[in-house]
Design a protein around this nucleic acid. Sequence first.
DNA 1: AGTCGCTAACTTGTATGGTAGTATCCTTGC
DNA 2: GCAAGGATACTACCATACAAGTTAGCGACT
Lengths: 252, 252
Amino acid sequence: MALQLKANRATVADEIVALLRDRIIRGELSPGAQLSENEIAQQLGVSRTPVREAFIQLREQSLLRILPQRGSFVAPINLSHVADSFFLRETVELRTVGVAAENCTSKNADRLRSIIERQRTLLDGGSDSAFVKADDAMHRYLVEMCGRPRVWKTISDAKVQIDRMRCLNAQDQTTRRRILADHVRIVEAVIGGDPDAAVGAMKQHLHNIFENTERLAKQYPGYMDGQTLATKRKREAKTRPGERPYQSATLT
Amino acid sequence: MALQLKANRATVADEIVALLRDRIIRGELSPGAQLSENEIAQQLGVSRTPVREAFIQLREQSLLRILPQRGSFVAPINLSHVADSFFLRETVELRTVGVAAENCTSKNADRLRSIIERQRTLLDGGSDSAFVKADDAMHRYLVEMCGRPRVWKTISDAKVQIDRMRCLNAQDQTTRRRILADHVRIVEAVIGGDPDAAVGAMKQHLHNIFENTERLAKQYPGYMDGQTLATKRKREAKTRPGERPYQSATLT
DNA sequence: AGTCGCTAACTTGTATGGTAGTATCCTTGC
DNA sequence: GCAAGGATACTACCATACAAGTTAGCGACT
C-alpha cells in the first residue's frame, strides 16, 4: 500500500495525523489493527520521528492505543465512549440550535438553505464522505451561528467516535433521505425563528442517529471495546460513580 | 531553575506535559513567555525529543503556540476562548447537575458532604492549588454522578482556560467563602433532590466565577490575546458567523 | 543618515542510531 | 507429548546529528 502525503500542511507530522485520522474514522484501518511506526514511515517515505509525533496526537484523540514496547493499535470503538459523545452533542447542540433559531438573520438563512441544497444534490450520486461532509457543515454552521466559534471544535472531537460507527456501513438511500428530512425540519424551524420546534427537531434527529449506531453495534460486535485487540485489555480498575446506558435529555 | 521530573508516569514526554501544563495554568510561565525545546531539555536533563513531543501535546491543548523555525510561546489568554469555555461548562454542567439531583443516592450524598467538608478545612490554611483541587473535585463528582465518565474530560479541557485566569490572582478569603457558599447551595439542592434549585444554584455559581474573570481581564490586559507575544500575531482571516460577548443560558 | 546585504546565533523539523522491554518460535530436556 | 528456556525479531522510547528557516546585529556602500 503506497500512501500519499499532500503537501498542504506545515509539517509532515500534522499531515500524517490528518491522513491516519481520516483512514481510522472511515474504517479503512479497522479497530484493533496494529500500526507500526516503522511500517508507516516506510510507506510514506519519511522517518519515524514525524510518524511517532502523529501517533501521539492520535492517541490524544482516542483513536490510537499505544502500548509501550508492545505496539500501537487502532482504538476499538467503545460503546460507552460513543454514548458519552452523544450525550455531549445533545447537550450542546440542543442549546445552540435554540439560540440559532432566536438570532437567525436572512444571511444565515441563505447559507442554511444552500447547505441543505448541497445535501440534496449529493443524495443520489454523492459519495459517503461527501454526504457526511455536507452533514457536518450544517451542524457546524448551526453551532457557530451561536457565536462561540470554539464550541464546534469540542463537538467535532466528540463526533469522531460517532462517525467511526457511521462509517461501518455504507449509508443507504433510506438513511440519507431520513437525515435530509431531519435537517430540513431543523433548518425550517431555525429560519422560522421557532426555538422550541428547532430544539425538538434536533433532538429527534440526534435520536435517529443514535438508534442507527445501536443497530450497528449489534452488527459489528468484533470491533467494539477492543475484542479484536491483539492483547488482552487490562480491566480499568477505577471505580466511577457508575455508567448507565445512554438516555435522552430531560430538559427541553 | 532546576526543574524536577517525577518518576510516576510511563514516558518522560507525558511527565513533561504534566509539569509544563501545571506551570502554565498556575501562571508560573507567563502568557507570551518563550519556551525553547533546547532550554527545557537541558533544565530537565533529557534530550529534545520528549520535550518536543510534550510541546506538541500542549499545543493541542491550546496552551502553547509553536511557530516553526521561530519559537514556542506560552499561549496568551484569549478572552473569546475563555468565554467559549464558560459557555460549554454552563451548557453541560447545568444539565448534569439537574440529572445528579434527580438521581442522588445516599452514597452520593455522603461523598458530596465530604468534599464540601474538605473545602471548608482548606478555607483558611489551604494553598490556592489545594483549594482549586477540592473545587474541581466537586464539579467533577457532580458531572460523573450523571453516569457519563468522559464528559468530565471535555469539561476539564475547557476549564484550563478559565483556571489560567483564576490563577492570575491569589484567591482572597472573600472569594473562597463565596465559592464555598455557592457549593453548599448546589450540594444541598442536589442532596435534597431538587433539580430546579440545583440548576439555579449552579448557574449563579458559574456566573460569579465569570464575573471574577471579567475583573481580572481588565486588571491584566497585557496577558490577554497575545499582546505580550514576542512576534506580531497574524490576523485570523477566517470569517465566522460572528462572535458576541458571553451571555447566560436562556434555557433552564 | 539610510539602506542593503552578509553573518552568526538562534529556532523548530526531520533523520538516524542505540536501548530496553515484549512476544514468538524453536529448541532442549524431561 | 509437553513444559521450560533461550535466541530472535519485533516494538516504542530516548538521544543525537543534521537540515532548513528566521531573526538580530553589524558593517559596508550609496
